[in-house]
Amino acid sequence: MKKFVLPLLILFMSGLYIFCIPENPTPLKVTFKLIPMVLIIIYAFQFCNTKAKPTQWIILSGLFICMLGDGLIAGSFIFGLAAFLVGHLFYLFGFIRVWKFSKPRFAMFILILGYSFLISNELVNAIAENGNSKLVIPVIAYVIVISLMAWSAIMTGNKWAIGGSILFVLSDSILSWNMFVSNVPQSSLLIMSTYYTAQFLIAHSLGSLLNNSSK
């Protein structure tokens, strides 16, 4: 039963933030937004014992940097975006270290590339129309990095990493579409529920990601 206590606490605090915490005051909102991520990092840390591998520490660092992004984005979209981009780079490098080549998984690059092109095209057009052209390059860079992150997770063959990365892409797709293209019904619920689930799955992947690997 003890092993379920922390996941249940993560679920409870995530639900509390999503459904109960008001938009204002902002410090209260940000504090409760960060609590589930702190718990997720603690959960991930359980898999990093005294003989933890570098890959585990790399991905754990990615979780921490994404948590910083959660706080920064409340004050500055660009700073928050930059933090998440760096976090995805850590995930990308971590997943690449345990890459397991497979032709079917390798071919998923085509689907990811197609999706990335379609959504980035819509975002860039919307951003340009709204007169925010300075955001075009950062957004394109972010789409490229998160797409590579998702592909690298798929190439690990680990179901938890794959599920987490795909949900992360979905969460950010909803967020960016809602922000730049058009309103998405229940956007906050969809964004945060997929986001917390994505981070939890990536954290959980540390328990099996390195099976039969010394990296």
Rank of each mutant, 00 (worst) to 15 (best):
M108H: 07
N158W: 06
C20V: 12
V38E: 08
N132W: 03
L175W: 06
G71Q: 03
F19I: 07
H204M: 12
G164P: 06
L6W: 05
F200A: 07
H88Y: 01
L68N: 09
M149E: 05
P7N: 10
K53D: 08
M149R: 01
S120I: 10
A74C: 10
M179L: 13
A150Y: 00
K53H: 13
H204Q: 14
F47N: 08
T156G: 09
L81A: 10
F79V: 09
F64Y: 11
L63E: 03
A52P: 07
P7F: 07
L111T: 09
M149I: 05
L39M: 14
V124R: 04
L167Q: 04
F79Y: 09
V169I: 15
Y142T: 04
R105D: 08
I166H: 02
M155N: 00
I78H: 07
Y43Q: 09
N178H: 12
S152P: 11
P27K: 01
F101C: 05
T50G: 11
G15A: 14
M149S: 00
I144C: 12
I202S: 01
S147N: 06
G69C: 08
L210R: 03
F168M: 11
S205L: 06
F4D: 14
G69F: 01
M37H: 04
A150C: 15
S14Y: 02
N49G: 14
F84K: 02
H88S: 04
F106S: 13
D70R: 04
I162A: 07
V5T: 15
L209D: 04
I35W: 01
V181K: 05
V143H: 03
W57K: 10
E129R: 05
G94S: 12
A126W: 01
I40C: 06
N212K: 15
I110M: 13
S102P: 08
I146S: 05
N132E: 12
F12R: 09
W57N: 10
G62N: 08
G157K: 01
S165K: 04
M155G: 02
I42Q: 08
M1P: 13
L210T: 12
V169R: 03
S193H: 09
M67F: 12
A153D: 05
I166Q: 06
T26D: 08
N125W: 07
K29W: 02
I59C: 13
F19L: 15
A150F: 00
L189Q: 12
A141L: 15
L206M: 13
G69A: 10
M192G: 01
V139F: 05
L206Q: 00
G164E: 04
I73C: 07
L89E: 00
L167E: 08
D70P: 03
L6M: 14
I21D: 04
F64P: 03
T194D: 11
I40R: 05
S120C: 14
I112D: 10
Q56P: 06
H204E: 14
D70Y: 03
V139G: 06
